[in-house]
Nucleic acid binder design. Structure first.
Length: 234
DNA sequence: AAGACTAGCAACCGCGGGCCC
DNA sequence: CGGGCCCGCGGTTGCTAGTCT
C-alpha cells in the first residue's frame, strides 16, 4: 500500500523558521501541549507541516534545551554511549539533559567521528578501553565450551570481573552474581537501553540477582567491563 | 576585497513501529 | 487481520557563517 504523505505540500513554507512562526508554535504548545502534531498547522494557522512543527519544537523551541558547546564530559559520554548503542541518537540524547538527538547526531558527524578517525585503533592488550563491537550472538551460546570463565570472589567491582575467552578473544565482563553489596540502584536510571538489546533495570537486573544469569546476560546484552564501569560511574 | 572552500547546524525526507478501527 | 494514521528515528541535504587564498 502506498503511504500517505504527512501533509499536503501545497502552500506550505519550507526552510528556515521565522521568529513569528516560532512564536505561533510556542504559543500554541503553551496552550494545548505537545502532541497531535498533524493538527497544529490547521489549528494554529502555521503554514508548516506537522512534522516540521514537531522537529522545530523538539530541536529548537523546547524551553529545557541546552544550547552552546558540548563540555568534555558530554563529549566523553557521547563517545561511550555511541560505543555501546551505535547510531541510536535519541537514546544517546536521552542521557544528555537538554541535548537533542539532532544536536548529538550533528556533533558526532561533524566532530567526534572525525576525531576518532584520526586516532589509531587500540592495541589488543589495552582491552579495557578499546572500542570494540560486542561478540556476535552466533559466536557463542553462553553455555558453550568456548567460554572459559574464572571469577574472583568478593564484593568490589574489580573482584567481580570475569574474564571470558570467547572465540579466542579475551573480554572482561562483570559478573553481577558476585556483587553482594554493590549499590545496584545507581544503575536504575541508566539502563533503559530499549528494544532488542536490553530493557529496563527492573526487568533485567532483578533476574540477574535471582540466579546465575551471567551466561544469558552476556549472550543477550554484551555489557563489557569497560562499559559497565562507565554506567556504574554515572 | 572578493571569490572559493569548508564546517557546522537546522531542517527535510523516507521509513518503520505502534496503535486504532 | 489488514489498512490507515500518527509519531519518532536516523540519514541526508542545503543554507550560512567563517576561513582561506
Amino acid at each position: 500500500m502506498g503511504r500517505s504523505p504527512c501533509c499536503a505540500k501545497e502552500g506550505l513554507n519550507k526552510g528556515a523558521w521565522t521568529a513569528q512562526e516560532d512564536q505561533i508554535l510556542r504559543d500554541y504548545i503553551k496552550l494545548h501541549g505537545e502532541g497531535k502534531w498533524r493538527d497544529i498547522p490547521r489549528r494554529s494557522g502555521l503554514k508548516r507541516c506537522g512534522k516540521s512543527c514537531r522537529l522545530r519544537w523538539l530541536n529548537y523551541l523546547r524551553p529545557d534545551i541546552k544550547r552552546g558547546n558540548f563540555s568534555t564530559d558530554e563529549e566523553d559520554l557521547i563517545i561511550r554511549l555511541h560505543n555501546l548503542l551505535g547510531n541510536r541518537w535519541s537514546l544517546i540524547a536521552g542521557r544528555l539533559p537538554g541535548r537533542t538527538d539532532n544536536e548529538v547526531k550533528n556533533y558526532w558527524n561533524t566532530r567526534i567521528s572525525k576525531k576518532k578517525s584520526m586516532i589509531k585503533p587500540a592495541q589488543p592488550s589495552d582491552h579495557h578501553h578499546e572500542v570494540r563491537a560486542p561478540p556476535e550472538s552466533d559466536d557463542h551460546d553462553g553455555k558453550s565450551g568456548d567460554i572459559a570463565a574464572s571469577a574472583a570472589d568478593n564484593n568490589s567491582l574489580d573482584s567481580s570481573m570475569t574474564h571470558f575467552n570467547v572465540q579466542g578473544q579475551g573480554v572482561d565482563y562483570f559478573d553481577f552474581t558476585k556483587l553482594n553489596d554493590f549499590d545496584i540502584s545507581t544503575l536504575g536510571d541508566v539502563m533503559e537501553l530499549g528494544d532488542d538489546h536490553a530493557t529496563t533495570y527492573n526487568s533485567w537486573c532483578s533476574p540477574i540477582f535471582d540466579g546465575p544469569m551471567l551466561d544469558d546476560w552476556i549472550t543477550e546484552y554484551h555489557v563489557q567491563a569497560s562499559d559497565f564501569r562507565f554506567w556504574a560511574s554515572l
